[in-house]
Design a protein around this nucleic acid. Structure first.
Length: 231
DNA sequence: GCCCAGGAGCCCG
DNA sequence: CGGGCTCATGGG
């Protein structure tokens, strides 16, 4: 696991996830990257983005987030105030917009009860359980929120992770979420910074080699892996 | 026109 | 517990 991480890092370098809209506060431009300097609104934007990107290309999500920002809707109370239908139209570009509008309402309601500041200070397992209780938030979205918005050390598993590592023969093609997550977390140091970069690198790598099945065999990791085995 | 995106819920065996 | 279906826009 560590070897592959180092190889990906060598190929693509620091990814600096999660991509967040820069934000002006007291005439100072907050940096786009660097989780420690993020302000509350940017953390909320990450949570919203994590929901909007479910089975959706990030490019379409960016447009929706831009529309939300234009209307100052990266705000729990405002999300609760706007009608489902209006919200759905604003996030239209992200697809599944009716479902996602409801999901945003659900998370906003949840955040009234458990504000981001509170979530940051509770135990990671407890926070995960709470997030999973929200309708529309499954394991991957919950873990993305924990890692990228709350800076908690947890490994995010997605379809790309399964594709790459089953192609390499390191997991079974139908391994479930928990198995895959355990494989990474049991073989890597418990470091949110590492988990952050690793997942981002997996996505970057998969976009290049794992969109079409016929490209899987061109994956440099695959080639390297089997060459290394031979040698 | 066809395929698939940084999934999740629900229903069904 | 796992497979199949639905949700929907936009880019290649």
């Amino acid at each position: 696991m560590n070897k592959i991480y180092n190889k990906l890092m060598g190929m693509y370098g620091h990814q600096g996830w999660w991509p967040v809209t820069p934000c002006y506060t007291s005439d100072k431009l907050k940096p786009m990257y660097g989780i420690k300097t993020r302000i509350e609104k940017q953390k909320l934007e990450i949570i919203i983005g994590a929901i909007l990107t479910q089975s959706t290309a990030w490019k379409n999500v960016e447009k929706a987030i831009t529309e939300l920002n234009k209307r100052n809707l990266i705000d729990v109370n405002k999300i609760l105030k706007i009608s489902d239908n209006e919200l759905a139209q604003i996030i239209r570009s992200s697809g599944y917009y009716n479902q996602k509008a409801k999901k945003l309402k659900n998370i906003a309601e949840f955040l009234k009860k458990y504000p981001i500041k509170k979530l940051e200070n509770i135990d990671i397992n407890e926070a995960r359980k709470l997030l999973l209780s929200v309708k529309g938030i499954g394991k991957e979205t919950a873990d993305s929120i924990l890692l990228y918005a709350l800076n908690k050390p947890i490994f995010v598993v997605d379809a790309y992770t399964r594709r790459i590592f089953s192609n390499l023969g390191l997991i079974s093609p139908n391994a479930n979420y928990d198995e895959i997550q355990a494989l990474f977390m049991n073989n890597l140091p418990n470091d949110s910074k590492l988990f952050n970069e690793y997942h981002a690198l997996i996505v970057e790598h998969a976009k290049r080699y794992y969109r079409k099945k016929e490209d899987y065999k061109k994956c440099p990791l695959y080639v390297g892996y089997f060459e290394g085995k031979k040698a």
